[in-house]
């Protein structure tokens, strides 16, 4: 569990987040992200051999609801934040698959 913090591919990370970074920003965030990972790596000092991995701090399971229909919200409210709308649809710039 003692992987060395590898170099961060900042342009890939920026692409995944759909962020355009200037060269200065790229250098700045690269350094900051490295520091963050270094801080997280401190956890590797702990012995967790007998600890089950979990995504939650609270030991709670099966938070379920009955299959019952609840009222939806009014159309006018649904569309209140729509940049554009037509025939009840949210209108967005034409969606084109990359490839």
């Amino acid at each position: 569990m003692s992987e060395k913090t590898s170099d961060i591919d900042i342009s890939y990370v920026a692409y995944l987040a759909r962020l355009g970074l200037t060269e200065a920003e790229a250098a700045q965030f690269s350094a900051q992200l490295k520091d963050i990972l270094k801080a997280v790596e401190k956890l590797n000092e702990l012995d967790v051999t007998n600890v089950e991995p979990t995504a939650h701090a609270v030991p709670l399971t099966n938070v379920l609801r009955k299959d019952e229909v609840q009222p939806s919200i009014a159309s006018a409210d649904v569309m209140r934040n729509a940049p554009q709308q037509a025939r009840g649809l949210f209108i967005v710039p034409k969606i084109v698959e990359q490839g």
Binding site: L64, D67, V69, Q70, S72
Partner: peptide, 30 residues
């Protein structure tokens, strides 16, 4: 709790959860 009926007019069976609004929380259907 939005209904699942097919063929309803567009965006009439929606709420902050299925519209993906920040701060809304999902609760699983048993």
């Amino acid at each position: 709790g939005c209904a699942t009926d097919f063929g309803a007019p567009p965006n009439t069976q929606v709420c902050p959860v299925c519209l993906g609004y920040p701060g809304s929380l999902p609760v699983m259907n048993e």
